[in-house]
């Protein structure tokens, strides 16, 4: 589990390093179009069912009407009772854009889905061999989430930052709710996350 902690530290360090380099760049110099694999943004997220903190890379797609983010999340034992590391692939649609002044854009509603993979042998993705077929129908490692949220984009003198939040649920909580609408309320199954995105080539 030490290894996962290191991996997270590296992800955070990378986030800070790339951010500082980009901030130090002379924005007046002509910039070549970045390679496709260079992310448009770096992400830092709090909670959201994928870790205490998550760091990752974001790509704008479909003419900036949606984004794909890949995040590495970490939950330390001191906070979550066990060291847990996840990798998340997130798709966010930005269907509604409101301009609020020259430098600020508000996305009042975002909708999306993400798949999280919890690392480690303890969380099986397939049913281990010593179980009969179909013993458990779900995977411990993979969670499927849906969410709605909101986002604000602000352009500072040299760079662009975004702040966002998400409220959603996963497939296991959803099935628990659907079958127990008498006792459980929607609020019982929701979970939230919030984060910032920093644009590398504004």
């Amino acid at each position: 589990m030490k290894k996962n902690y290191k991996l997270f530290a590296i992800a955070i360090a990378l986030f800070c390093f790339v951010t500082s380099i980009t901030l130090a760049q002379d924005s007046t110099a002509a910039k070549p179009r970045p390679k496709w694999y260079i992310p448009d943004a770096l992400d830092l997220q709090y909670a959201g069912s994928i870790g205490f903190l998550s760091a990752g890379a974001g790509y704008d797609i479909i003419h900036k009407k949606a984004s794909i983010d890949i995040l590495f999340g970490y939950l330390p034992r001191a906070i979550g009772g066990n060291d847990i590391s996840t990798i998340t692939l997130k798709f966010t649609a930005l269907p509604w854009k409101i301009r609020a002044g020259d430098n600020t854009t508000i996305y009042p509603v975002t909708v999306g889905t993400f798949f999280s993979y919890t690392m480690g042998e303890k969380y099986s993705s397939d049913l281990p061999s010593w179980y009969p077929d179909g013993y458990y129908w779900w995977s411990e490692a993979v969670r499927v989430n849906i969410f709605v949220g909101g986002k604000v984009r602000h352009k500072f003198s040299k760079n662009i930052w975004e702040a966002y939040y998400e409220v959603g649920t996963n497939e296991l909580k959803l099935v628990s709710y659907v079958q127990n609408t008498g006792y459980l309320t929607v609020w019982d199954i929701l979970h939230a996350g919030a984060g910032v995105r920093f644009y590398l080539n504004p």
Binding site: S49, I50, G51, G80, G81, N82, A192
Partner: peptide, 13 residues
């Protein structure tokens, strides 16, 4: 402080 924020479904809190 807000209970909506979840770190992981398997958190031990």
């Amino acid at each position: 402080g807000c209970s909506l924020f979840e770190y992981h479904p398997y958190e031990v809190i």
